[in-house]
C-alpha cells in the first residue's frame, strides 16, 4: 500500500462505528420505497436521502398475498445504476442467504423486514457477521434491543406497512421512547427486572438508563402518507422517516415526495408545513386497523 508520512494503521471496514455512522447520515432525511429505476429517479429528484429497492410496495403485497421475497438482483442493480444516492433492499426475517446476496450486490443497507414473508419463525439474522449494515423494525423497546443485540445498526418503528395509516407507527414510537424515559428514572436494582420484562440484554438496558437514548438511531416507518405524518413522526422523536406505499400509491408522487422531504427538514415549523402540504392531490386511500386481515407488525420475535 502506498502511503505518505502522515498515515498510520490499516483501514477497517464493517465495524459498528462505520455501520452506525451511515445511519447517522440519513438523519433528518426521507428514505423512499421504489420498485423500478423510474421511481428511483423521481425519489432522488425529490431529495430522498436513500431509496429502498423492492419488488412490490407493501400496499401491493397486502393485495396480492402469497410469499413476498427479496427482490430480483437485476431489478436492484437497475436501481443502483439509476441513482447516486444510497440504495437499501429488503431481506426476509431470518433469511441470511438473501442477506448474503444483497451484500454481494453492494447494497448500502439491508432491511430485515416484516413486510416480506418471514423465513424463520424463531431466529433473526446474525447481523454481526456482515459488512453491510442492517435496519430492523420494532414495536417496543424490548424488540428494538433484541435487534440491536443481534447487530442491527438502525431501528425503525414497524408501524403497519401498506396501510397509509400512521396510528401504529405512533404507537410504536411512543412505546419505545416512553420506555426509554422510564428507564432513565429506574434505580439500578430495578434495571434487572426491566431487562427481564423487556426480554433484552441487561448491558443494553443499563446503557440506555445511563444515556437516555438508543445506541443507534431511531427512524419511523409504516403508514406515512402525508407531510404532516412525517413531521408528526419527527416530533415524536424519530430522527428520519421511511415512506413506503405513501408516495407511489398517491395521485401525484413527485410533488408529494418533495413535500415530505421538505416537511421532514422543517418538522417544527407549522407555517412551512402548511405551505408544503397544499395542493398535493389525493394521498393513498389507506386502511383502518379494524379492516386488516394480516398485521405485518406481529412478524418478528
Amino acid at each position: 500500500m502506498s502511503s505518505t508520512s502522515f498515515e498510520s494503521t490499516v483501514p477497517t471496514t464493517g465495524s459498528q462505528l462505520v455501520k452506525r455512522g451511515l445511519a447517522e447520515m440519513f438523519c433528518g432525511g426521507v428514505i423512499m420505497d421504489v420498485v423500478n429505476p423510474e421511481q428511483a429517479r423521481i425519489a432522488e429528484d425529490a431529495g430522498a436521502c436513500a431509496v429502498m429497492a423492492l419488488e412490490r410496495v407493501p400496499a401491493d403485497i397486502r393485495v396480492d398475498g402469497g410469499v413476498a421475497r427479496m427482490s430480483d438482483p437485476e431489478m436492484i442493480q437497475g436501481i443502483q445504476a439509476a441513482v447516486t444516492i444510497p440504495v437499501m433492499a429488503k431481506a426476509r426475517i431470518g433469511h441470511f442467504v438473501e442477506a448474503q446476496i444483497l451484500e454481494a450486490l453492494g447494497v448500502d443497507y439491508i432491511d430485515e423486514s416484516e413486510v416480506l414473508t418471514p423465513a424463520d419463525e424463531a431466529h433473526h439474522i446474525d447481523k454481526w457477521k456482515f459488512t453491510v449494515p442492517f435496519v430492523c423494525g420494532a414495536t417496543n423497546l424490548g424488540e428494538a434491543l433484541r435487534r440491536i443485540s443481534e447487530g442491527a445498526c438502525l431501528i425503525r418503528s414497524k408501524g403497519e406497512a401498506g396501510t397509509g395509516n400512521i396510528v401504529e407507527a405512533v404507537r410504536h414510537l411512543r412505546a419505545i421512547n416512553g420506555d426509554i424515559r422510564a428507564l432513565t428514572l429506574a434505580d439500578s436494582a430495578e434495571l434487572f427486572d426491566w431487562a427481564k420484562q423487556l426480554r433484552a440484554p441487561l448491558a443494553l438496558v443499563q446503557e440506555i438508563a445511563e444515556t437516555g437514548k438508543l445506541p443507534v438511531p431511531l427512524f419511523c416507518a409504516g403508514g406515512i402518507a402525508t407531510p404532516a405524518d412525517a413531521a408528526l413522526a419527527m416530533q415524536l422523536g424519530a430522527q428520519a422517516v421511511f415512506v413506503g406505499s405513501g408516495i407511489f400509491k398517491s395521485d401525484d408522487p413527485a410533488p408529494r415526495a418533495k413535500a415530505i422531504v421538505e416537511a421532514t427538514t422543517n418538522y417544527l415549523d407549522p407555517h412551512i408545513l402548511a405551505k408544503v402540504s397544499r395542493g398535493l392531490g389525493a394521498p393513498m386511500t389507506g386502511i383502518g386497523m379494524d379492516d386488516l386481515d394480516i398485521k405485518l407488525a406481529d412478524r418478528g420475535w
Binding site: F6, T9, V10, P11, T12, L22, T84, T131, P133
Partner: peptide, 18 residues
C-alpha cells in the same frame, strides 16, 4: 462523490494529523 465506493467500502482508520 462516493470516491471511496459504496457503504461496504466505508472504513475507519487512524490518521496522523500534524
Amino acid at each position: 462523490r462516493n470516491g471511496f465506493g459504496r457503504q461496504v467500502d466505508s472504513f475507519e482508520q487512524d490518521v496522523q494529523i500534524p
